Amino acid sequence: MTFEDFRRSMGHSSRPVRNEIEKGAIRRFAAAIGDFNPRYHDDSRRSDGRLLAPPTFSRTFEYGSIEGLTFAREGLIHGEQSFTYYEPLYSGMTVFCSTTLRDVYERVGSLGAMIFLVYGQEVRNADGDLLEESTSVIIFRDKEVAL
């Protein structure tokens, strides 16, 4: 894809994708990041038996694809990521996640021409309330990209 191809997709979003938050997934994620805090492992700590999800757990969700925005994922570089949390996520919740291509810009670095893709992700509950949002920057390099 060219810079202009990416620019045409700017502002487009995926359709929201339904995700179920499961206890086993929370436990596996917490163990994988080396966080053995009982809030993420011991469901007897809460009267409702739910587990709290660790802060970056939402990266395991499916966010869908932006129609028409398809390109090879090999060689992509993860630039940066930030999160804003509004409500905690717990096991047993159903959430709806989507992604939007918010911005596209070009830079030339020591590795040559690069296209920066700025994505915004949202996690909402069934009522549409925003629970969490994040921004991620992905760097796309292609031999055909020229500035």
Rank of each mutant, 00 (worst) to 15 (best):
G75L: 04
G64A: 08
R59E: 03
F83A: 08
P38N: 14
G75A: 07
Y105L: 04
S65P: 00
E22V: 12
E87S: 11
I21Q: 01
T94Q: 09
E20W: 11
P55Y: 05
R73V: 07
R45S: 10
R59M: 02
D103H: 01
R28M: 13
L51H: 12
D43C: 14
T100R: 05
D103N: 13
C97V: 02
H78L: 05
G64C: 05
G68N: 09
L69F: 14
Y105N: 01
T70I: 04
I26L: 02
Q81H: 13
G92Y: 00
E87A: 13
V104E: 05
F29V: 02
L89R: 01
R28T: 12
E22N: 03
F83L: 15
G64D: 10
A53Q: 06
D42R: 11
F96M: 09
C97E: 02
G79R: 00
R73E: 15
E20H: 07
G92C: 04
K23A: 12
E22R: 09
G24Q: 14
L52I: 02
Y86P: 07
M93R: 01
T84D: 08
G79N: 05
P55I: 13
V95E: 00
E87V: 05
H41R: 01
Y85N: 15
M93S: 06
L76D: 00
